[in-house]
Design a protein around this nucleic acid. Structure first.
Length: 466
RNA sequence: GCCCCCAUCGUCUAGCGGUCUAGGACGUCGCCCUCUCACGGCGAAAACAGGGGUUCGAGUCCCCUUGGGGGCACCA
């Protein structure tokens, strides 16, 4: 049997981090098993679904590298098929028309609430003959769910979850306007698409019991379920606006790498012994449904930062330089013709000090600014009169260096410090301030080498003069 | 209110009855490396929610309590 998984978001907003993890798990499982991963847009809620949200989801999936197989299925386009199944259910006696008005149902619920009873449709139209139908009230179609016994959902994550059938009610299949509800649509689409494994958020666990009623009534095969515990915010509460970045697109803008994001999301609820750094290739090889944790996980941006730092250090200098350039341009920074090449050369020293692409841009500041440099406070404090004197001497010492390479400059600087009975730091820090305008930077000899003889000497002379 | 799920360091987790004086990672703190900041290396503090059982033996199994989360729509 070939395995078919799917990611089925409703396009009512951006692709959030929880949804991204669900998508990742589905994708990994399909890739691991050599199966198929489908994307289905659940847009049956016409009020809240927007084309912009569909674009955001697709863009997010693309950035994360989660490619799906086949065409994207738009659920609403299949409404006729869903309605057809509902009619079939009625014909088979598994569903019926209900003429109760929304107001009437709300009354019923508040009465149940007041009496401390479970809130559920009481089946008032379950066995009433069609002759009782109210003339001008368009009916909804409800499933005729079993009232006794229990429904068992075998779940790869949660185990066997049992629901007493008397807590399940006759939920709505078709609205009074004839459109299908989510509960019906998912089941029909999953069946028609041949979905074998339903991997989704925990919030659908109780829905599984309801959906099972439709599946059984139609005599369809029951998919393998895996309900993932939901993600929580850093404070343990449910994810919401105040937890900062929720949309996957925000992480792109914050300068995270998709491979780091995949690794991070993977470890949120899934484990492979003590392994932490797991490449996507390795993840595809190892991923399974058995090692999914059963408790909700909190997001931890510090860990994401650390992971991203690892991936950045291992990324190629040219790729990182391109990313930095793109960010620079998007910020409207003027890019000189020789910058791309300089960025690549400077990248080893830069990437070791950055955890995100955004930090990389910040670190590349010394390559982007033009003379005379504007120093930040800490750098300015380094340039005391003594320091300026040292810089003056340095212009001579460095200027006399035959070949402008990091190692030759290293030797020249150390020689200069020695001759003047100075610690290397006493020379290097003023030099750093003059060259970069900052108090921290990559190794100073590398900075000199990347900047080149003319530019370096000019920057040093600028600050020596004061 | 009713139903369902969950519970190991601050966080993510390993652990699938004895090998647990509970392991790894992030974060935190200290030391080393060192031209700064990082990276890297070494080390430290830090957890089985509580109470009952079962068992020769429980972090691992069962029950209760407590605490979180989810669901109970003509939303998905």
């Amino acid at each position: 049997m070939t395995i078919v998984t799917r990611f089925a978001p409703s396009p009512t907003g951006y692709l959030h981090i929880g949804g991204a993890r669900t998508a990742l798990f589905n994708w990994l499982y399909a890739r691991h098993t050599g199966g198929t991963f489908r994307l289905r847009i659940e847009d049956t809620d016409r009020e809240r679904s927007t084309p912009a949200a569909i674009d955001a989801i697709i863009e997010g999936m693309g950035w994360l590298g989660l490619n799906w197989d086949g065409e994207v299925v738009h659920q609403f386009a299949r409404a006729a098929r869903h309605a057809e199944v509902a009619k079939q259910l009625i014909a088979q006696g598994h569903a019926y028309h209900c003429y109760a008005s929304p107001e009437e149902l709300e009354e019923m619920r508040s009465a149940q609430r007041a009496a401390g009873l479970p809130i559920r449709y009481d089946g008032r139209w379950r066995d009433r003959p069609v002759s009782d139908a109210k003339p001008n009230v368009p009916p909804v179609v409800r499933i005729k769910a079993p009232q006794t016994g229990e429904t068992v959902i075998p779940d790869k994550v949660q185990g066997e979850v049992r629901f007493s059938n008397n807590v399940l009610d006759d939920f709505i299949l078709l609205r009074s306007d004839g459109t299908p509800t989510y509960m019906l649509s998912v089941v029909v689409d999953d069946f028609d698409m041949g979905v074998t494994h339903v991997i989704r958020g925990d919030d659908h666990l109780t829905n599984a019991a309801r959906q099972r009623q439709i599946i059984d009534a139609m005599g369809w095969p029951v998919p393998v379920y895996a309900h993932l515990p939901l993600l929580h915010g850093e404070d343990g509460q449910k994810l919401s606006k105040r937890h900062g970045a929720l949309g996957i697109h925000e992480y792109k803008d914050l300068g995270y790498l998709p491979e780091a994001m995949r690794n991070y999301l993977l470890r949120l609820g899934w484990s492979h012994g003590d392994d932490e750094m797991i490449s996507t290739e390795q993840a595809i090889e190892w991923f399974n449904l058995d090692n999914i944790g059963r408790s909700p996980a909190r997001v931890d941006f510090k860990k994401l930062d650390n992971l991203n730092g690892h991936y950045m250090r291992n990324a190629s200098d040219t790729v990182l330089a391109e990313g930095t350039l793109a960010l620079l341009k998007s910020k409207g920074v003027a890019v000189s013709p020789d910058l791309p090449a300089k960025l690549v050369v400077a990248m080893p020293g830069l990437k070791e000090r950055a955890k995100t692409l955004v930090e990389l841009v910040e670190g590349a500041h010394y390559l982007v600014t033009a003379r005379p440099l504007v120093l930040d406070d800490k750098a300015a404090k380094l340039l005391t009169p003594e320091a300026r004197a040292i810089l003056t001497g340095l212009v001579q010492a460095l200027g006399a260096t035959a070949d402008w390479t990091a190692s030759a400059l290293d030797a020249a600087t150390r020689g200069y410090a020695e001759q003047n009975a100075l610690k290397l730091g006493a020379v290097a820090q003023p030099l750093r301030a003059a060259l970069t305008g900052r108090s921290t930077s990559p190794g100073i000899f590398d900075v000199l080498a990347v900047l080149g003889r003319a530019e370096s000497l000019a920057r040093i002379a600028d600050q020596a003069r004061g």
